[in-house]
Every structure is written in structure tokens, then in C-alpha cells.
Design a protein around this nucleic acid. Structure first.
Lengths: 340, 340
DNA sequence: TTGAAAGCGATACCAC
DNA sequence: GTGGTATCGCTTTCAA
């Protein structure tokens, strides 16, 4: 009973029976005499026995733990995804170990290495912005560790993926701006190398195309981040160019708000002069004054679907599993920033 | 080599040597002949051998893992705390398993039970709003599992704690409102049973006292949550009572913003008519229009200090450790909402 | 109905 | 230098 942990041995010794019997009794094995069983149960309760987690894991070669690798946790969207993951995991008696890479490639590699050695039964991952090399993820596949990508996925790795139809979402958002009579619509986007940025940008362009509005390179601003400051910076650049706009589609809510605040500084009112649409439906977009029209991403659902796919892999580890990609629909939330 | 995992046995068999030698070679033990060592190392690299985490844990009775129990992750403050914790943990080669209780007592108990069986080497915990019974935390102490509370702590359990001087922070914040000439200052607070709420409220009252401003019960509104909606609701109640205010101190930033927006609706401008101060310095308080004066909590530092205290406990597990409570200082960030 | 012993993957002590 | 074996805590055959 060293280090405060009561083991099955302690129970056996105390009751003068073998560890096998104790183990069986605790497992409520019908072979064990009911009096013995009762005695074991009672002592276990009395000494507050808890089976050692590590021993169980070693024996069963499972950890009842999922690993989640994601770039940020202070992020309304990811937090919803996490909730979805946790809800499914908890319902199956699994724990979740969250690795927060803080958008750092180095940290992501460390985290992956840390999870590769049998610490978890499966991995859910969303790759960071910085990541361009994916061998640390390939490692999971090589070791036959179940892996599901969500949101920011890796094309080169064949495994289950859950993504959002960013292209369609952007298309619908920009259509909405157009339908309210806007014609000179600017685009402010996040990191150009990200697939999600590319798709949102393409959605923007396609919406203009469909509406027969000429595409104008001058109205497009790709930024290094999806942050507030970059939204403001983008508008400054726009104003310097002296171009006229009456609408703005931003690839994140923070970009939208940064842009809005900067436009206001320059004397433009939203939605009157420039109507603005963001992306993600962060809480702030609801609270902001004016509230921001934005694309709602089904984060909770994405978490649930991803972990369900992961559990399917875990449960059929031997069977060869056909990788699947699920594309989730979004919806547009119309608020003050586009209501005229 | 079942389930894709290469073990020390596989290496031994392949090289026709014993597992002991392989183990020693991998540990770079000087007793091993260098040619043997080289052969082992090379084969290990070739087969991509990784020592099994669970076996290591069982052997050493340590998991090199910290458990963090907290009520929310989408929370600027907690996320900073987490970063502080992670930075220290990573630097010591530890992983962090985050249990997000979503402010639910039930979930908190589940999480605690889940961590009590040797899955982690120590626990960092911030209790949820709902929690009134603390036996699940006492369990850690009983089992001699290192435990540190941060932010929302449990008075009845003797262990290391890291808290913020909420009372002083509130005092300084309200002093600031008074110093800008405000005299009819309302208080909008979160759940009354929380220690942090009590202290912030007391800070508010003491600031008035010090300034010889009569305390007026009508200006005080305790709410069920610290959320945006409750801020708005509080102001609605205030307006119904037909009381005049020229300042407002809220126990959270979201309460502050909810109040501000509602006041604006009723025709009051901030800071001109009512200046407003929040608490926590969430990102939104910087971005909001107008930006919000608020109390900055040293979250990152709190995380670092907490985990350092935890490691001290882990490293001196046998020595009887004297519990300590650290109180961290805050600072006031003055922004537009109180600049006249 | 129960006990002895093997085994999960790794380390470390004791022989030789 | 190297191999055999006990051990960590638990489950599960195999024998009795």
C-alpha cells in the first residue's frame, strides 16, 4: 500500500484469499461464492480501492483516452468542437487529453510525438497554420493508431476527415451582401496558404461571378492572421488605395470587427455605408455593437461526428477501414451589420 | 509486434540478444559493448521503436502527466492560465490532460474520479460555480495525490492555493471610477455564492466607504451568471427602479458590455453619461466599441505559479509539505469606457 | 469455488 | 558484458 494506493494484493492479504479471487469478485464474476464476493466488495469500499489505471491500460492495451490536437482553445469554434468530442467520449467512458499547439509547428510535433507511444487509443487533429510538413501525423497511420482530421486537414494523408464547406458558406454570405444591393464588396482573408482561406476566397469570387459583378483585385486583401488588428490593417490599406466599397466579406469575425471599427474611424457607418459579414459566429459577433452578420459553423456537430468516426476506427482496428471525408453544411446568421 | 507497436522483445529477438541488453543499450548504459549498443540503436531507429508509455508508467509509478480541472476553456483568463501551466509542464517533460467541467458539478465529480486512480501525477483545479460539496477533491488529499487550487478555491481543503486579490482589484477599479468624478456607481455581479464574487463586491463597498459615498442597496445587482445577457438584464432592472447612475462596476467584462449595450439602448452614452468598468480584461474588452476599462488578471503567471507549486509537491511527495496560499496582484487597464 | 502462474512492456538486480 | 528473473497491478487461463 505504498504511496497511498490500495492494490488488489492488499485486499487479498487482508482477507487471506488469492488475488485471482479478489479480481474475480470485483468483476462480479458469478463463479465467486457470494459471501466471498461480499467480503471483498465491502473491504474494497472500506479501503476506498480504485483499480490502478496504468495497470489496466497495460493489460488491455487500451487507454480509454482520446488525444485531441488543435491550434487554440480560446476559440469559440474549437471549444464547441471540443464539447462535441467530449460528449461522445464521456458517453463511452473515455477521457480526452487536449494538446493545445498554440498554432506552433514545433509544439504540434512535440504533442504528436508525445501521443504516439501508446498513451491514447486514437487521435483527433486540426493542423496549425504553420504546419507544412506532416510526417508527425503520418506516424500515427504507420503505427496503426486511429486518426481523424477535422477543420484544417491534411490532404496527403489518407484517413477520415470532417470539414466544413467553406466555399459554399462564403458563396452564400457574399450572395447575401449582393442581395441587399451591395456591388463593391471587399474581401479580407486570413493566411493564404490555408485550405480554408482558399475556399472562402473562392466562394467570394464565385458569388461575384454568378451575380455578374466584375472581380476587382484592388478589393482583395489577404492577411497573415485572422485577427482583429489585421482587419483594421486591411481597411487602412484599402483606404490608402482610395477605392470605394459598400460591402465587406471577412474570413473571420475578428477581421470583420477590426475592419468595421477602422471604417467607422474613417467616417463610414455600418451597415449604412458599408455592410459587413464575418465568418464563424463567435460570441463577440453577437455582442458587438452593431451585431455582426456571420457564417455559423456547426462546431459541436463536427466534434460529435469526428469522434464517432474515430470510435468506429478504434472499434474495428483490424478490419481495413475505408477513409471517408464528411463535409458539413453551415448557415448564415443575419444581424445588424447587414440589415439596412 | 502486434497492433503495430515494436517492443523491446522484437528488438531482442531480431538481434539474438536478451531484452536486458536491449534495455541497457537503449538507456546508453556504459556497460554495454559499443558494437552491441550501435546495433540496437540502429535497429530501434529502423523499426521506429518507441518505449511503451503505459509500461513505463506502471514501472515507475509516475505518468509524467498533470491533470487540470477547470470550468471552461473558452475563457481568455483560463486559457492564459492553461498556457502558463502548459509551459511549465512541457519544460519538465510533462503532458497536460485538461478536464473541462463546463461549470457542471456532475462533470467535475466524474473528472475527479477519473483522475484519482493513478492516471496523473498531480492535479490543478479551479472549482465550478455549481460545486458545493468537495469530497471528490478531498479524495486527492486522502490518496496523497498532489493538488493545487487556483482562482476558485476550496477553503475547507488544506493544500496549496493560488488566488487573485479580487477585493483589492475591485477597490482600485471603483476608486478609479470615483476619481473621474462618478458618485452614483452601480454594482453588477456574478453568482453571489462564489468567493470571487463576494470579494469583488466587498471591494466595491469598501471603495465607496473610503470615499465617503453612501452605499445604496438599490444600485446593487447580483446575477446568476457573469454573462452578457445578465449584464443587460441587470440594467433593465435598474432602469425599472428609476434610479440614476453615472458609473457602473461589473464583476466580469461580459456583464459590463451587456450593461453598456442596454444603457445605450435606453439613451445613455458611455463614458459620457455612465462610465463603466469590467473585470478580467478579456480580448473583447479591448476590441469593443467603446473599448472597456477593466481589471487585468495575471492568468499566465497564475498558471506558472500554480504548476510550480504542484511540481514542488510532486518532487517532495514524502516530505510533509506545508500548504501555502499565494495571492496575486492585478492591474487596472484604463480604456475608453471611463475616459471622459 | 479457488489458487497458481503467465503475461502486458519495460527496468534493474543478481548471477556468471 | 550479458542473460535470467523479479517486479509494477491487474486479468485470465489452467488445474485442482
Amino acid at each position: 500500500m505504498k504511496s497511498g494506493q490500495v492494490t488488489i494484493k492488499d485486499l487479498a492479504k487482508e482477507l487471506n484469499i488469492s488475488v485471482s479471487t479478489v479480481s474475480r469478485a470485483l468483476a462480479d464474476n458469478p463463479l465467486v461464492k457470494s459471501t466471498t464476493k461480499k467480503a471483498v466488495m465491502e473491504l474494497a469500499k472500506k479501503l476506498n480501492y480504485q483499480p490502478n489505471f496504468t495497470a489496466l491500460s497495460l493489460r488491455s492495451n487500451t487507454t480509454r483516452t482520446l488525444g485531441v490536437i488543435l491550434p487554440q482553445v480560446v476559440h469559440d469554434f474549437f471549444s464547441q468542437v471540443l464539447r462535441g468530442i467530449e460528449d461522445i467520449a464521456y458517453s463511452k467512458g473515455y477521457s480526452v487529453i487536449i494538446c493545445n499547439t498554440h498554432e506552433s509547428y514545433e509544439r504540434e510535433v512535440m504533442d504528436a510525438k508525445n501521443l504516439v507511444n501508446g498513451r491514447v487509443d486514437g487521435i483527433l487533429a486540426c493542423v496549425s497554420k504553420e504546419t507544412k510538413d506532416f510526417t508527425h501525423f503520418q506516424e500515427f497511420k504507420d503505427r496503426n493508431i486511429p486518426l481523424v482530421f477535422f477543420d484544417c486537414v491534411v490532404d496527403d494523408i489518407t484517413t477520415d476527415k470532417v470539414i466544413i464547406d467553406d466555399h459554399e458558406a462564403a458563396l452564400i454570405a457574399v450572395n447575401h451582401l449582393i442581395s441587399t444591393g451591395r456591388k463593391k464588396i471587399a474581401y479580407v482573408g486570413g493566411p493564404e496558404n490555408l485550405l480554408i482561406s482558399k475556399n472562402r476566397y473562392k466562394g467570394y469570387k464565385d458569388a461575384l461571378l454568378e451575380a455578374n459583378i466584375a472581380f476587382d483585385e484592388n478589393l482583395v486583401l489577404h492577411r497573415e492572421t485572422g485577427d482583429f488588428k489585421d482587419g483594421a490593417g486591411a481597411v487602412q490599406d484599402l483606404l490608402k488605395k482610395n477605392v470605394e466599397i459598400d460591402g465587406l466579406f471577412a474570413a473571420t469575425d475578428l477581421l470583420a470587427i477590426g475592419a468595421l471599427k477602422e471604417l467607422k474611424k474613417a467616417g463610414y457607418s455600418t451597415p449604412r455605408d458599408v455592410s459587413i459579414c464575418g465568418f464563424s459566429n463567435w460570441k463577440i459577433s453577437e455582442i458587438y455593437d452593431p451585431s455582426i452578420t456571420t457564417v455559423d459553423q456547426p462546431g459541436y456537430n463536427m466534434g460529435k461526428i469526428s469522434s464517432n468516426m474515430l470510435f468506429k476506427q478504434i472499434e474495428n482496428k483490424d478490419a481495413n477501414h475505408k477513409a471517408e471525408t464528411k463535409v458539413l453544411k453551415t448557415s448564415l446568421v443575419i444581424r445588424e451589420s447587414t440589415q439596412i
